[in-house]
């Protein structure tokens, strides 16, 4: 299959929002190549006639009644926040959305 390159790894890091260093990207590219080579083995037996399994124990239609339950208090909700204004979470400016 495809040979993963540093540019791809940088793109993946961006998708995953991890500001990897150049050095990490280089290192990871080599490792991922090796790992992908090993895991590509799955394609040997994953033929079209085999259905995929996403849940190990097959169940279906697990629903909740539409009844209000417990909520967190504002204090609890914000307790772990790096920054808040007492009622909302504070994040730095969002750019790149509007120009």
């Amino acid at each position: 299959m495809s040979e993963i390159n540093a540019e791809q790894v940088a793109h993946l890091a961006n998708l995953a929002r991890i500001a990897l260093t150049e050095e990490e990207i280089e290192h990871l590219t080599a490792e991922l190549r090796q790992i992908m080579q090993a895991v590509e083995k799955v394609s040997e037996v994953a033929t079209p006639d085999v259905p995929p399994t996403s849940h190990p124990i097959p169940m279906q239609n697990v629903f909740r009644d539409d009844v209000v339950g417990d909520v967190l208090t504002v204090e609890q909700a914000l307790s772990g926040a790096p920054e808040s204004d007492g009622s909302r979470f504070v994040v730095s400016a969002i750019l790149g959305e509007e120009q």
Binding site: M1, V39, V42, A46, T47, V50, P51, P52, T53, P56
Partner: peptide, 11 residues
């Protein structure tokens, strides 16, 4: 090729 195939291996 990857996730889909892995789920088949699971089967």
């Amino acid at each position: 090729a990857y996730y889909g195939s892995a789920q088949k291996v699971r089967t």
